[in-house]
Design a protein around this nucleic acid. Structure first.
Length: 289
DNA sequence: ACCCAGGCGGGCG
DNA sequence: CGCCCGCATGGG
């Protein structure tokens, strides 16, 4: 068990706000406990005020626990700079007031890719169900012992595990018409496409690479770049963001996705991803229409 | 019954 | 480019 001190951080808002949706267990009313499976291990994090209590079972990729938690939950982001950069609008100020400490997480690129391929033309609750269903059906089981109690955890299925099944079979997990994309992306990532290569690429090039994969377009690519690779200039434009941006900055007039990208890049630069997250979660919660 | 959900691919002008 | 359509599935 390790304890990390963290200010300007809310585990609850961070995990609830529809970022990659594969955590284990529920966020309670207190909001303060969450578990994640790793390729051969399990991490549990609980927040009590400014203290973040972390424990792990098994390995977590050979990385130090504290360092991994800091990286994953965005604890190294300088929130005062973030807030300063996006505080130029009443809507954003209100969102920051409602969800203080909501951070952009950084998740496994492969898991993030599948998550946002599944997200297209779908809703948050069902995305969570589908991801859990894929894990249950195709994830590898790992067993750990704590206090003589056996704990079994399934990790997220590898590309190889998801390229094998027939499309019909993948649809059994509720993936619908996205099954063919999942299979296609899995095949590419298992054989020729190296997701790890994108870490060192610039935003534009990495985005172009991702869009070459089946089922990944402008919006899904931005989600992967933001929440898988932590490229801060990524600005995913979904239906909520498009509506909100048109209303907030274009007098309610319809805009093309490209126009919205240009505006966001000019206004927020490398903090655009954070602006997006605060606009997205707030407009969704108040059902801005 | 109808509408929508963190879109994408393909076809058209 | 921009526009339009179909697409699986489940919940309001």
């Amino acid at each position: 068990m390790k304890t990390i001190r963290a200010s300007d951080f809310s585990l609850k808002y961070t995990v609830e706000s529809a970022q990659p949706l594969t955590f284990i267990g529920e966020i309670g009313a207190e909001g303060q406990s969450v578990g994640y499976a790793y390729s051969n291990g399990y991490v549990k994090v609980r927040q009590a005020g400014r203290n973040l209590h972390c424990e792990h079972l098994g390995r977590i990729g050979g990385i130090r626990l504290v360092s991994e938690i800091e990286r994953r939950f965005g604890l190294r982001d300088e929130m005062q700079k973030v807030y300063g950069a996006i505080r130029d609008d009443a809507f954003l100020v209100e969102s920051m007031k409602r969800y203080p400490g909501m951070r952009i997480t950084q998740n496994d690129p492969w898991e993030t890719t599948v998550c946002f391929v599944v997200s297209q033309f779908n809703n948050v609750k069902r995305i969570r169900l589908i991801m859990q269903s894929l894990i249950q059906k195709y994830g590898e089981v790992h067993e750990f012992y704590r206090d003589d109690k056996k704990i079994a955890i399934r990790s997220f299925p590898t590309p190889t595990a998801l390229m094998g099944p027939e499309i019909k079979e993948l649809m059994g997990c509720g993936t619908g018409f996205r099954a063919k994309y999942i299979k296609g992306v899995a095949q590419a990532c298992a054989q020729s496409f190296d997701l790890a290569r994108l870490y060192s690429m610039g935003y534009d090039q990495a985005k172009e690479e991702l869009i070459s994969l089946p089922g990944i377009g402008d919006k899904v690519a931005d989600c992967i770049l933001l929440m898988g690779y932590k490229k801060g200039e990524a600005f995913p434009v979904d239906t909520w963001i498009k509506r909100a941006m048109e209303r907030l900055y274009f007098g309610g007039k319809k805009q093309s996705i490209r126009k919205i990208h240009e505006f966001a890049e000019g206004k927020w630069g490398k903090y655009a991803g954070y602006a997006q997250q605060y606009i997205f979660w707030h407009s969704r919660s108040i059902k801005l229409s």
